[in-house]
Amino acid sequence: MKAPPFRYARPQTLDAALRLLADEGAGARLIAGGQSLVPALNMRLLEPTLLIDINGLAELTGIAETASGIRVGALTRHAALGASAIVARRTPLLAAAVPFIAHEAIRNRGTFGGSLAQADPAAELPACAVALGARLEIAGPGGRRRVAAHDFFRGVYETALGRDEILVAAEIPAQPGATLFLELARRQGDYAIAGLAGWAALDRSRITDARLVFFGTDIRAVEARAASAALATSLDAAATALDRDLAPVADLNASAAMKRHLARVLLRRACAAAVTHAA
């Protein structure tokens, strides 16, 4: 189908965009890359009264190295994230995840902030943001606030972002360990049936610290705290502990039991590979 009719605005400043959002109320939608929003419009799942195009907002662009890590503007395209030397050096997990996001045509337009704000439970970047301890900078009528990625994702397409707020950037600490990234999908570019994003700090071949985040299994990216802690004991202990972390939800691809199984498989594969690589 074709998108329903809407009014269109292309503000040039963040303040102007915030004013438009506040004035329009519930009918307003922001469009950045549009790679999830436009399908929803074309399928008439959404009928916004006003589309606010934020592609002109310079405040939302750029990748910068900071003292503690990196700062990624919300409008950063997936392709730019994947091509950035700063990202590859400071947060290699993000660089590892980008090739798994949809297809080249989508990665050229889809944005980092858009993926976080969309909060698809099977998407790669929300899981990476949680795994890396990102802090999300949000602008609203009352000024700026920061929310930890861990608290930002609430459920399927649900976040801490208010209707009158705009995600501006993510501040991401430098990655403290080796990259763990694996995902299982039926075809290249599809959303994950189950995926793992995380890092592991190793002392020779022993994992001393790790953070494992699973996506595609639950209603949101889930930090597997019990499994992460148990990694210091053994892989078997971590795989068993994972049952306490996950509450898988069946979808068209897999039952909850299968997702639970696949998450264990990913945990074993990723951690075994990291240990082998370090040895």
């Binding site: 998108a3 436009v38 050229n108 337009r109």
Partner: peptide, 13 residues
Amino acid sequence: GALARGCLVFAIQ
């Protein structure tokens, strides 16, 4: 110059 989906962008953009 970059590959894109024509169906996911509006002409006005």
